[in-house]
């Protein structure tokens, strides 16, 4: 921005530091930080604390950069949808070019710094994740197929694999299953939200399963994906990072999740409207707890293993 344009900006349109932070989608970043941290901590090889801290920071920054690129590309649909109208670009606080520039520079910085701080395998993985979210999901899948959530969910599932790669420099069955856990969890989580959120995705021409295939079909898909999620969650408990504590937690959490998905599947729209989508809301809220407690249990199991008090 030139001085001339800067001087003509009005007070309320001036972008503050927080607006640039908002471009990085801090709420999504918190999931990235937590899962990448668990991936790093449960790995069989340790890293110095500073390296671990820097690695998590740069993974989060990479995730934030892809968020900025997403907001730059999706500015047109963000302007249409009520939920996203207050984002920095549609509200006019940040220029689209600034968001693009921030996204590209932070992507390059985060990948280069992760490579220097940890290893280049993890850095390559982060670069692929940014590419996957910004290009494959945002530019291609999101506006094209109602399966956008399913395949795009991979972008959010990579962080624990990157955390693992930071420590080990590679991929293992454990890290693949941590990826699969988030990957299979994403569809029921988002579709439960789509069932009770009055969204204007159709106005923005974004194909959502509830609109393209109907609500009964979405309910069936929630149950199917939940059923597919169970063996992944339990299978993770049989690997070297699992143990009795994780397994006990996974058994309870999966039983509750299947029960919630079953209840959502059994209902029709009339029943759902009658109690203001109570079952759908409960399933969505529980899905957040489900993921947090699974990764929390992995972390606790890893702590117990360090103390020689757990593990297979």
């Amino acid at each position: 921005m030139s001085d001339a344009t800067a001087n003509t900006s009005t007070q309320d349109q001036e972008a503050q530091f927080g607006d640039y932070v908002a471009l990085l989608k801090p709420r999504v970043m918190s999931l990235v930080v937590f899962t990448a941290f668990v991936g790093l901590m449960v790995a069989p090889v340790g890293v110095p604390a500073v390296v671990g801290f820097a690695a998590i920071l740069f993974i989060a920054l990479g995730g934030g950069a892809s968020g900025a690129l997403n907001m730059w590309y999706d500015a047109d649909i963000d302007r249409v949808m009520k939920r996203t109208q207050s984002r920095p670009i549609p509200s006019g606080k940040v220029a689209p070019g600034e968001a693009l520039s921030l996204g590209l520079w932070l992507s390059a910085l985060s990948v280069a710094m992760l490579g220097l701080a940890a290893n280049w395998f993890a850095a390559g993985f982060l670069a692929f994740t940014i590419f996957f979210y910004a290009v494959i999901y945002t530019m291609w899948l999101k506006r094209w197929t109602p399966q956008n959530i399913v395949i795009g969910g991979a972008a959010g599932a990579f962080p624990p694999m990157i955390g693992w790669a930071v420590a080990t420099g590679g991929v293992a069955i454990e890290s693949v299953l941590m990826f699969a856990l988030i990957f299979m969890w994403t569809p029921p989580h988002f579709w439960a939200l789509a069932l009770f959120m009055k969204s204007d995705y159709d106005k923005a021409h974004v194909p959502m399963l509830t609109v393209t295939h109907g609500r009964p079909y979405t309910r069936r898909m929630i149950l199917i994906y939940t059923a597919l999620l169970v063996p992944v969650a339990l299978g993770l408990g049989l690997t070297s990072i699992g143990g009795p504590l994780y397994m006990a937690a996974a058994l309870v959490l999966n039983a509750l999740f299947v029960r919630g998905a079953w209840r959502v599947w059994r209902r029709d729209e009339d029943a759902a409207r009658a109690d203001a989508y109570g079952a759908e809301r409960r399933l969505f809220r529980f899905s957040l707890l489900y993921l947090f407690l699974h990764f929390g249990a992995l972390l606790a199991q890893s702590g117990l293993r360090t103390l020689d008090m757990g593990g297979w």
Binding site: D3, N7, S9, Q11, E14, A15, Q16, F17, G18, Y20
Partner: peptide, 12 residues
């Protein structure tokens, strides 16, 4: 402009 952008500059 220095006052207006103080928060932003401090953050950077």
């Amino acid at each position: 402009i220095h006052q207006r952008r103080f928060g932003r500059n401090l953050g950077v």
